[in-house]
């Protein structure tokens, strides 16, 4: 199989990572060699195998719904690259 530049650009859109031509070409090369290596899995027949999603053989535990953390609003907001008092600021999204 081969991943072409069009596919790379499609994946980059889905990944929300901008790529220019040069980077797209480099990525196509890298991804193709990685997928050549991954293709090995096709040697195996797996029709009747159950997929393994987690090795932790445990069921989710319930807990009571109580707030345990303190109000950390100021510290949380401080980590934002751009804030305006109590809000996170992003580029305009509504015309």
């Amino acid at each position: 199989m081969s991943i072409d530049l069009k596919t790379i650009k499609h994946i980059s859109k889905l990944s929300r990572i901008s790529v220019d031509e040069k980077k797209a070409e480099k990525l196509a090369g890298d991804l193709n060699s990685i997928f050549d290596f991954i293709e090995k899995l096709n040697e195996l027949k797996t029709d009747n195998v159950e997929p393994l999603t987690s090795v932790a053989e445990t069921t989710l535990k319930l807990r009571s719904d109580v707030v345990k953390s303190k109000n950390l609003r100021d510290q949380v907001i401080k980590n934002s690259p751009k804030e305006n008092e109590d809000y996170f600021v992003v580029p305009k999204v509504i015309e």
Partner: peptide
């Protein structure tokens, strides 16, 4: 990691452009 609530942010022309540049 989208550049909104914490971490590095690159400026963009709009929200999507900001996400894409931030992550790139």
């Amino acid at each position: 990691y989208d550049g909104v609530k914490y971490g590095f942010r690159a400026e963009g022309e709009n929200l999507i452009d900001m996400y894409e540049k931030t992550r790139s």
